[in-house]
Design a protein around this nucleic acid. Structure first.
Lengths: 276, 276
DNA sequence: CCTATCTGTCTACGGGGTAGACAGAACCGT
DNA sequence: ACGGTTCTGTCTACCCCGTAGACAGATAGG
């Protein structure tokens, strides 16, 4: 399921592992290798894969410790030998499912091309596993997530932005992608529900499309602008087109371009990257 | 809890109510007024208020049908006379908690001022109830949410954008605010957890700050850009400052400005608003 | 070989969402 | 005024979920 090349096996940093909080130690698969008891029958990754398959097929709500364990042919409690809580499993799932970022662009690639590619790759990952955005509440700190952060910062290499601003820019973009993912998750849920209640019966509440509902709810006195927008067809989305994700991203990129222009004007262009 | 003036009582549209799907009928409080049995002891709004209070105090996870019912002095099942499922209660909670948008700016206000005010008001609402972003998965269709949509579209009144683009812009901004709200919710959760495990003991996993963890995890070989960013202090946020929300919003607004400039160049400025 | 250690299992607990049956209150038409 | 209808709140019961704790067996170190 990994999208691209992992940066390194795992154990290249020897001293840090000792001080890692437990939850992160699991995420990074750092364990003392010499052990005593019977050999473990499972792997954290096998568990994560099973859970991911379940979430992909039936949504995150279907992921319970019992069902994941059943899919692996073990007891529910067996999972707790690998994961200390369900939240921890969700964190591992999310990190594994995002996969690795695409390989970096060649040096000298324009920032906008690089950043756009990075964003689209992230959206692709979230499209493949829409539940990711709901799986974890804490800031992403797994190996895959960290690789994405690295890739995002790298895309801004040749810009005149200072490190703090670069971080903010990548953060804002990530946040945006996260909410796009949430929309994708909502759509996936809706499709699943639609499937369950017979293929095309819109008798179920939230399955009617937005435009229809707005036409019912918005009246011209209280919501003239909404009515006008609906009338102009602004809410009628093509059922063929999966979901137009580009608008918000384009706005952000335009904003970043403006930011870069301002920074370039203030700090005259140097040839290389500025240090410290 | 309502922030500002509601647009109208409720029952100004007579015919639509009949065709509303059940879930929305509850959101819009449309019921046949002539009834037969004993007078209801509760109100949907009283239930929503109790649930909101619970969520504000202890987080969305603490909201269970049982606890909400207990807070109101009734049995769990009594709530199901007003709401057909917990999801429906969550939808009502979310809509009530966002409240009404601020009153519209005077006509002729610059779009950026109006939109920025709108956005900040929305962030304020989400700051007051950070769990809102987690409460509902479906697109917002309650009376309050619709009022926010109306207000957002109104802010773009004097721009040369066509209706479809305006809708997209408002959607992108709403989405952005939604993810900001998610960050706020994560912070709130973290603070609650911190409170629970003794005020300032960072023994708990995810409570250590991001910069410290990144310093542990990112090594210079695999993540040079992350290491550089951490070294430059880009991740050290002031513990005093609550959360700097402006960056992403500014980027979006700059992007919108660029979009408007382009539209104005293409369609020369008219004095009034263009119709149809 | 003994013993410490680790694995998977079993049992059990509290809590969650919600279906169904029921008693009583309030209103309707007569 | 009255019987029937309809709606309310309660009670009971069911199944699922996350997880603590005790236990049997496997494994490797001394």
């Amino acid at each position: 399921m990994a999208t691209h090349d992992p940066p390194a096996p795992v154990d290249s940093e020897p001293d840090t592992t000792a001080e890692l909080p437990r939850e992160l130690a699991v995420l990074w698969r750092s364990q003392a290798p010499g052990r005593r008891g019977p050999r473990p029958g499972l792997t954290l990754d096998r568990i994560a894969d099973a859970a991911i398959a379940l979430a992909d097929a039936e949504g995150l709500a279907a992921v319970s410790m019992a069902r994941v364990a059943a899919a692996l042919g073990v007891t529910t409690m067996a999972l707790y030998r690998y994961v200390s809580s369900k939240d921890e499993l969700l964190a591992v799932m999310a990190d594994v499912a995002v996969g690795w970022p695409p390989p970096p662009h060649a040096a000298g690639t324009e920032w906008r091309v690089a950043l756009e590619g990075w964003a689209h790759a992230q959206i692709a990952a979230l499209t493949a596993h829409p539940w990711i955005t709901r799986a974890t509440a804490s800031p992403p700190l797994g190996p895959h997530s960290l690789a994405w952060l690295e890739a995002g910062l790298r895309a801004l290499d040749d810009t005149p932005l200072d490190p703090g601003t670069r971080t903010s820019v990548v953060g804002a973009l990530s946040l945006h992608m996260l909410s796009e993912g949430q929309v994708l998750a909502a759509i996936a849920d809706q499709e699943r529900a639609q499937e369950r209640t017979g293929s095309r019966a819109p008798e179920h509440p939230a399955l009617v499309d937005y435009a229809t509902l707005l036409r019912l709810l918005a009246d011209a006195d209280d919501h003239p602008h909404v009515v006008a927008a609906v009338a102009s067809g602004a809410f009628d989305d093509d059922p063929d087109e999966p979901y137009d994700t580009s608008i918000g991203l384009d706005l952000l990129l335009d904003g970043i371009a403006a930011l870069i222009d301002r920074a370039a004007a203030q700090r005259p262009p140097q040839d290389g990257r500025g240090d410290a």
